[in-house]
Design a protein around this nucleic acid. Structure first.
Lengths: 345, 345
DNA sequence: CATAGATGTTGGAACGATCCAAATCAGTCA
DNA sequence: TGACTGATTTGGATCGTTCCAACATCTATG
């Protein structure tokens, strides 16, 4: 069963050349003659040769391992799955492979995973950090010349590159849209207060609300876990207030769906009796009933963007600190009531 | 910037021992004296040593790389994301790391990915194969002593191990449940006809329908892409027939959600006017409105199970062919109408 | 005809770990 | 004391590849 590995030396002997020549062929060097190359390639196929990247990697200076580490905090969230797929696309098209791991928001797990990836000699790391991650955790990596790109959640301090969505503008445009539909009391639902993303989105909310001339009422801001259940909970609390809001922009689509559930449970129809806007534009947003008006961030594109940035830095062989914010855009569907309004008007 | 790597030799010199001793410490060998070990460990921390698995792996016989390859066909599908998370749990708890890739149902991509993983020296492969994958594609792997476990979709032929859900029984129990609620014309919606999973589920449908004494009406079987859009399409076709069905079991939850959308578009309320049962029990099934009655397969548990099987085979150092079917269970919620019936009765 | 470039090819010496057989050390026993 | 024992430690040799400097071989030039 376990016959010995086929190595370059075996190939060399069978093809009647030296191992150096085989190596040259492997690297696609233009130095070898066409006929020689053909012969070598043929014997490789014949003997079923498989390249040993570990060995190659050992000799190669620095870490040209061809592996990039990708770490996300919650793979079961469609947003991150899409993101990972986007990264995979660009990473794979350049011959790299990705090493994807999930931390499930555990900072210990994250540390383990990153350490393990380092041992395996990743040439770069792309990470959506778990909550409460310290930027300093990645200092050893960049010190060793391994570029690190942080996605989705920005990490204050440290000279890391980052790719994040334009959160303030996204929420602000949602608020403006709701205001243009006549809403005056607009809630902001869901999200954990100790995250950078929450604060970015909240700042967009505040800016737009004050710009519209509505008073800033902090009771309209209802933090909650960024999940469907959290959304249902948040809308319940928002509706319990004396001076009810008539619309809400939600921390993300999961919260928005939860809010819709909560509305229905109270015999209120989202889009007709209450306006809901989400954030993310996950796949289901389009097909849900009612279709969700949401701020589209296109996670896959974001993943591609981040992947490109990382690969660029790997190619440059020098870690730099570049911050990209990807633009977002409001997608008007049904849950905000705009369509119904238009039909009546 | 790029200071030279810290190696075992550096550690050895700094700690005043030989590289062999350092190596022994690295492997946690009981041969080294406690005080020596402590000194070595300390200097490792001091100098910021990182283990080079590639180098170790080179010398080590066989492929004890500590990497397992995980390949799924559609990561954006929550089911597979959950599965991957389950695999990651067990894999990571034993010190392995996973190398996760997505094929997006492309068989070429799958080939590339698997080849790349081999080059990186994976010790085992866990794969949910893309459609129309040939079992023979994995022959080189198992010939080289690398265990392969196929999940979710079984692959006829070949001596691969597999972990699949008990599809026939799942669908059969759904059909029996609908029959017990009084339905006589029950549709089977969605799924690609050329997949093993479809045929397994369909066989369960047929068996249960004939066992219940209803005639087998092939027009009640409506294949469609296993997506939300496919579900909407399938229900439309099912309702267009003369002798309409009154209930449907769907290929998966995505199809079921799509079917619900389609019903609402026709002013039919799922659970009241038409009974819907899904398959998979994705996270949203619980929180959707109406909550989806579905066959629960617990993808995360399935992932864990598959991961354990793979690790077992890696540990045994001998590839064997073991087939596991994980049991499923019908979760009755609202979309089948059972709750409403009970309330009235 | 000698020489200088091109153009291909090649044998060692790395890379950073592990493994093995042999060496060293400290007790113990006769 | 000296042989014997078990516990620790240690130099190479080695894994499969790349890199480098040197070597052939061939062609064009003076």
């Amino acid at each position: 069963m376990r016959r010995p590995r086929v190595t370059v030396i075996d190939i060399a002997q069978a093809a009647g050349v030296s191992k150096s020549t085989v190596s040259l062929v492997l690297q696609g060097s233009p130095l070898v003659k066409g006929t020689t190359r053909a012969k070598v390639v043929e014997t490789m196929n014949e003997l079923g040769y498989v390249y040993n990247r570990g060995a190659a990697n050992l000799r190669q200076t620095g870490s040209k391992s061809g592996i990039v580490g990708v770490v996300v905090n919650d793979l079961t969230n469609g947003f991150f799955a899409e993101l990972a797929v986007g990264v995979d696309m660009v990473v794979q098209s350049t011959g790299f492979v990705q090493f994807l791991s999930n931390t499930g928001e555990s900072i210990d797990r994250q540390r383990e995973v990153v350490a393990s990836m380092r041992e395996h000699g990743i040439s770069g790391l792309l990470i959506s950090p778990a909550r409460a991650t310290d930027a300093a955790d990645f200092a050893p990596l960049i010190e060793a010349g391994i570029p690190v790109v942080v996605v989705v959640r920005s990490l204050p301090g440290g000279k890391l590159s980052s790719v994040v969505a334009d959160n303030p503008n996204g929420v602000a445009s949602a608020v403006r849209h709701l205001a243009s539909l006549g809403h005056r009391r607009i809630s902001f639902l869901g999200g954990f207060q100790d995250t950078a993303v929450f604060n970015e989105r909240l700042s967009g909310y505040r800016a737009a609300v004050t710009a519209a001339g509505f008073g800033l009422d902090e009771s309209l801001v209802v933090p909650a876990p960024p999940s469907r259940a959290g959304g249902a909970d948040a809308i319940a609390r928002a509706l319990a207030a004396d001076d009810r809001p008539t619309a809400a922009v939600c921390f993300n689509d999961a919260v928005a769906f939860g809010a819709c559930d909560g509305l229905r449970a109270r015999r209120l129809e989202p889009g007709r009796d209450f306006a809901i806007v989400g954030f993310d534009d996950v796949i289901e947003a389009r097909t849900a009933v009612p279709a969700l008006t949401t701020v589209s961030v296109d996670p896959q594109a974001m993943g591609r963007r981040a992947g490109q940035l990382l690969l660029k830095q790997i190619a440059a062989g020098r870690v730099s600190s570049e911050a990209i914010t990807t633009s977002v855009r409001l997608v008007v569907r049904e849950s905000c009531g705009a369509k119904q309004l238009a039909a009546h008007g």
